[in-house]
């Protein structure tokens, strides 16, 4: 196999695997005569998705909007808290146990509480997305700051740099690859958060659509919803990965030099 062929194959691999998976699924459904209400054939899901495209799109956009809002809040909050935790041992000692305890709470459990406080609608979904995607950002930013090489710090200190200067000239640039790396994880978590909230109790979004389709025994629509979430997740992940490469080119040096 030549170099260009192997590269082409590498690009095609995800699509090939996906195609094989869908074909196997289709054949299994037909071969084992699985009822549509248990597991619809992917071709059927596709047909339904096209038929109800406008409805799917509307609910998708609702979910996308709440997810992005929660995600943006998580970036701002996570960055601020991560910087504070990473820069100050006192904040670290005080907040870290609390953060871990908070992260250990299943987020499904807080949705009903949010509903009591805020009612049904977009707000609980935004907050759930925020709460679930915020933790990895904090941890990563804090790690990036806390792992500054002591020698780098010594160089700065011997130049008479203030703590603030060390933070802005070394700490923050150094934490950026950690931040952008965590965004890829956080965005998928944010989708999980908002869909959980919509599923537990909501009147909008793709989670709600799936729930009500499920209640009508409309399995193809439920699965179409699943696919829609997966596609949105992949797209947003790709956007985050792209931003990561743009912003922290230097952290990918291995690939560029080699």
């Amino acid at each position: 196999m030549t170099d260009s062929q192997s590269r082409a194959l590498q690009t095609a691999m995800p699509w090939l695997v996906m195609a094989v998976f869908l074909v196997a699924w289709e054949l299994a459904c037909v071969g084992f005569r699985i009822q549509e209400i248990i597991l619809p054939r992917p071709s059927k899901v596709m047909i339904v998705a096209i038929e109800r495209f406008d409805i799917l799109l509307r609910f998708c956009l609702e979910t996308l909007w709440t997810t992005m809002l929660g995600f943006l809040l998580a970036i701002v909050g996570g960055l601020v808290l991560g910087l504070a935790v990473g820069a100050s041992p006192f904040v670290y000692a005080g907040l870290y146990p609390l953060l871990i305890a908070f992260n250990a709470i299943p987020k499904v459990a807080i949705v009903p509480i949010l509903m009591i406080w805020l009612g049904v609608g977009a707000t609980p979904a935004v907050i759930t997305a925020f709460v679930i995607s915020f933790f990895p950002i904090v941890v990563n930013v804090a790690t990036g700051l806390a792992t500054i090489e002591p020698e780098m710090r010594d160089v700065m200190r011997s130049l008479g740099a203030t703590r603030y200067e060390i933070l802005t000239k070394v700490g923050i640039p150094r934490a950026m690859p950690y931040l952008f790396g965590s965004l890829k994880i956080a965005i998928t978590l944010a989708f999980i958060g908002s869909v959980i909230s919509e599923t537990v109790g909501g009147n909008r979004g793709i989670g709600f659509l799936m729930l009500s389709a499920g209640a009508r025994n409309d399995a193809p629509t439920t699965f179409a919803g699943l696919f829609a979430i997966a596609i949105m997740g992949i797209l947003m992940y790709a956007v985050c990965a792209m931003v990561e490469r743009r912003m922290t080119r230097w952290a990918f040096r291995g690939e560029m030099v080699g």
Binding site: E151, M152, V155, S158, L159, T248, W250, R253
Partner: peptide
């Protein structure tokens, strides 16, 4: 003061 260590500690960004 100028300092130079064994590890060049240059900033990769």
């Amino acid at each position: 003061v100028g300092m130079a260590f064994q590890n060049p500690t240059l900033m990769p960004w």
